[in-house]
């Protein structure tokens, strides 16, 4: 396996690391929940990769994500906005409006035809437009997060969740369940509530089609469907949506290798 550069995305929920070859293609990746001691966790990541391919000393590493400044091994750090845009542009080969929904924030990034960021907006003050909103709700409803989307899509009706706050939404779920409302319509309403927050951000920057998605949350099929519903746009999702930040970081690292 040829590795020319490495990227690491230290998110609020998971840490993702990828390796790319000289052509910028993703050749290795690893993901696990973020640990409190990020630097040690990165050491473990590098040791795992080193065990496979030998010395990594000369291979440049760029860090991104919420904990990027904790990665002492990185030669450079870049914001997740630049990295997600770079990764998605490389993967999909065109610009557009990228929605990235992460565990604890969400972003909307307008990417130009040549991969340049033209504008962006970020929600980082409220959990209601992020993966945390679904995680909390999933816990309350005792449904695994990974299954939430599929279950929601079986709903034949939808309950409107009026609260846009994660904490109040949880109270609302409890109240609806107590009234005997079925799980599926509540779930669909939760997906809609999350997406409406993100759609407002899209409107604030102005949607430039096509609509691109990244982040772990977009693996959820109901999120993809509701985003398409709310925006009226077909959505394009890279093969590894959760790794786009790390991929972008690796691509920046590749420039350092040159």
């Amino acid at each position: 396996m040829e590795i020319a550069a490495l990227g690491i995305d230290v998110g609020s929920t998971t840490v993702k690391m990828v390796a790319v070859n000289r052509a910028g293609a993703l050749v290795w990746d690893y993901l696990e929940p973020v640990a409190p001691r990020v630097s040690r966790q990165v050491d473990d990541f590098l040791a795992k990769l080193g065990a496979k391919i030998g010395s990594l000393a000369e291979i440049p590493l760029v860090a991104t994500g919420y904990g990027r400044n904790l990665v002492q091994q990185a030669r450079q750090s870049k914001t997740e906005i630049s990295c997600h845009a770079h990764g998605v542009f490389q993967e999909l080969g065109h610009g557009g409006t990228l929605i990235d929904i992460g565990g604890q924030d969400s972003k909307v990034i307008v990417i130009g035809a040549r991969g340049r960021i033209l504008d962006f907006a970020m929600n980082d003050k409220c959990a209601a437009g992020t993966g945390r909103f679904l995680e909390n709700s999933a816990a309350r409803m005792q449904i695994p997060v990974a299954e939430m989307g599929a279950v929601a899509l079986t709903a034949t009706e939808e309950f409107t969740i009026t609260s846009t706050c994660t904490v109040f939404a949880e109270s609302e779920i409890i109240s609806l369940l107590a009234q005997g409302v079925a799980v599926e319509p509540i779930l669909m309403g939760l997906h809609r509530a999350l997406v409406k927050r993100v759609a407002a951000m899209v409107r604030s920057v102005g949607l430039v089609p096509p609509l691109l998605l990244s982040g772990g949350v977009v693996k959820n099929p109901a999120i993809r469907k509701v985003i398409a519903d709310e925006t009226g746009e077909e959505v394009f999702v890279p093969t590894h949506p959760q790794l786009m930040g790390a991929l972008g970081a690796a691509l920046f690292a590749l420039k350092l290798a040159d």
């Binding site: 870049k78 906005i81 630049s82 960021i117 970020m122």
Partner: peptide, 8 residues
């Protein structure tokens, strides 16, 4: 991110 965008 804004500065990265301006300097890209």
């Amino acid at each position: 991110a804004f500065l990265e965008m301006l300097n890209h």
